[in-house]
């Protein structure tokens, strides 16, 4: 099956109570912004977390912007600003 693999980290993972999600790939989720908009419909926590303006998004392990086109099999991650070191 053609899917998108979603990953969530740190505060975002906790607030969504979700570390990973697999979605069927569909033409309507053509870009990262469209995927994010669709995810925000999943409930109040999703709407709130995905509206945070410091949210970082990565596609296939590279930080990406909202216009990034999504392909079947892509791994997409949502996470807060990093704090390592």
């Amino acid at each position: 099956m053609l899917t998108l693999q979603l990953r969530f980290f740190a505060r975002v993972r906790e607030e969504l109570d979700c570390a990973a999600l697999e979605l069927p790939w569909q033409a309507e989720l053509a870009t990262l912004d469209e995927l994010q908009h669709a995810l925000a419909q999943r409930g109040e926590a999703w709407r709130r977390v995905l509206a945070q303006d410091n949210l970082i998004r990565a596609v296939n392990h590279t930080v990406a912007d909202g216009d990034t086109a999504l392909q079947p099999g892509d791994e997409i991650a949502f996470y807060p600003p990093v704090t390592g070191g």
Binding site: F9, A58, V82, T83, G84, G85
Partner: peptide
């Protein structure tokens, strides 16, 4: 390397 690690590498501290 340390400065970029702190802003780019996906680590999170609790």
């Amino acid at each position: 390397v340390m400065d970029y690690l702190k802003t780019d590498a996906p680590f999170w501290k609790k």
